[in-house]
Design a protein around this nucleic acid. Structure first.
Length: 160
DNA sequence: TCGAAGATTCTA
DNA sequence: AGAATCTTCGAA
């Protein structure tokens, strides 16, 4: 389990950086589906990335989970990653999926149903924090959009 | 069918 | 700064 500390937003139709910009394909069809579901894709021949679908059915949009603050199950995550520094365990989209063993089989899973193999929930305790917004990482187009968000001062984000 | 790029990570 | 690595997409 981990706390989401960094995200990026992507949207179809008017966002050239989005997988859904040129319409529906076999890969991105989940982005057009039910909000609250997981969109998991494989990239660079090596990594899975986890997104949460955010808009109503038919409207493509998703939020990429870029980093987590590990909360429990640290030993399993460390074993999965071969990394033993908590700050470097889940501080990247490809790293956190490996730590949590998220893969193809999670594509389309309903993250809002407690019986799912992967879920997103509200925190048990709320803590005050500031959110910083920047350009999206690894994206060469639409750099005018500050659609990357992270918790300021978090030790667990992918990049400063 | 083919070529190019990719919402990354790790090492030098 | 550059390599690894293979899926996906769009054009031919």
């Amino acid at each position: 389990m981990g706390r989401i500390v960094e995200t990026e937003a992507y949207r179809g139709s008017d966002d050239p950086a989005s997988h859904a910009f040129r319409g529906m394909t076999k890969r991105n069809e989940i982005m057009f589906g039910k909000p609250g579901c997981a969109y998991v894709y494989f990239t660079y021949g090596a990594h899975y990335c986890l997104n949460v679908v955010t808009e109503r059915t038919g409207m493509a949009a998703a939020v990429l989970i870029r980093a987590l603050e590990p909360l429990s199950g640290l030993e399993i995550m460390m074993k999965n990653r071969g990394v033993y520094d908590a700050c470097k365990l889940t501080n990247g989209p490809g790293k956190l999926t490996k730590a949590l063993q998220i893969g193809r089989e999670h594509n389309g899973v309903d993250l809002t149903t407690s019986s799912s193999s992967l879920i997103v929930v509200k925190p048990l305790e709320f803590e005050r924090f500031q959110i910083t917004r920047t350009t999206r990482i690894g994206v060469k187009v639409a750099t005018d959009r500050l659609w990357r968000f992270y918790i300021q001062n978090s030790m667990y984000i992918s990049k400063k």
